[in-house]
Amino acid sequence: MLAQWPRLLASKGVEDLVLVNNVSDPSADTLTLSTDIFRCASLQRLFLGFWTFPNTAVLPRGPDVFPLLRELSMFATTMTDGDLDYMLACTPSLETLALIFNLTPDRVHLRSKSLRCVLLWCSMVEEGVVVVDAPLLERLILFEGPPGPDAGQVKVKIFGAPKLRVLGYLEPGIHQLQIGDKVIKPNTRASPSTMVPGVKILALKVNFGVSKEVKMMASFLGCFPNVETLHVQVTPIIYSTVTLLDIISKNNQ
């Protein structure tokens, strides 16, 4: 019956589809998504929850798979790096991508001519996020990164995003920021090669009780010289002799 549903939806020309597997135990193995879902060329918005991607290497590839898809959201969905690359290659009209509570893929390579907004919410992207070629990308939202002190560093690399306007939350304690070929480190001096001048709204999450994070915050600010709105979340709340105004003042100098 499950295999028949996508075929029926495809024949009806469905445009909006929310397909969530109602699992009683979220830690249990999830069902494999039916490959027939990739025949719904009429889809414009797709939300998948609690599924495992099939082997996309053997599926038809190209812009005709999802030619009209504009919004793609995946919640607690298991997939490989190649599966995400496949979806981006098959969605020439995709504008919004959301990965929520996903344990995979290990890396997110954003290579899309149409993407405008990307959300990663509590997604365990161990190898990081790389904006390879996204000429229309305006918003990159990294919300609630990997939890715990042993989560390790997550790389955030920005190569090709000339229209990026909104970025955050960058966390100096978790994120390793790279602009082009330059890795941003504490006390890195700002230069044209390390700046993203288009960013107007920047959000940071900083522990002011950790000196390295405070120094990294100053270096991060130097990469975005034209920020008009700055959001700073202090976590955990610790009284410190270093204030946000001190950091901004030194950075302006």
Rank of each mutant, 00 (worst) to 15 (best):
V227G: 03
N251E: 13
L8S: 12
L17I: 03
L221S: 04
Q44P: 02
Y169M: 02
K155A: 12
F75Y: 11
G222E: 06
D106T: 07
P149D: 06
W5S: 02
L2Q: 14
E213C: 07
G160Q: 06
C117R: 08
T229E: 12
R61D: 11
F38E: 00
L110E: 05
M217R: 03
Q153P: 03
P63D: 07
I174Y: 08
P54S: 07
A190Q: 12
T91A: 10
L84Y: 02
L84A: 02
M79D: 00
L8E: 10
L84F: 05
W5M: 07
V125T: 10
G145W: 08
L103Y: 03
P149I: 01
L72M: 04
W121M: 05
L72C: 02
C40Y: 10
T35H: 10
G145V: 04
T194Y: 07
N102I: 08
D64I: 02
G49P: 02
L119N: 09
P105W: 01
E213Q: 15
P225N: 11
P135M: 06
V199N: 00
V129Y: 01
V166F: 06
L72R: 03
V131K: 03
V154P: 00
V130A: 04
N22H: 13
D81E: 12
V154M: 13
N226Y: 00
L48Y: 06
K113E: 15
M79F: 05
D25C: 02
C117L: 09
I100M: 08
P54H: 03
E127Q: 13
S24A: 14
I201T: 14
I201K: 12
T243I: 06
R139D: 13
T188L: 07
L142D: 01
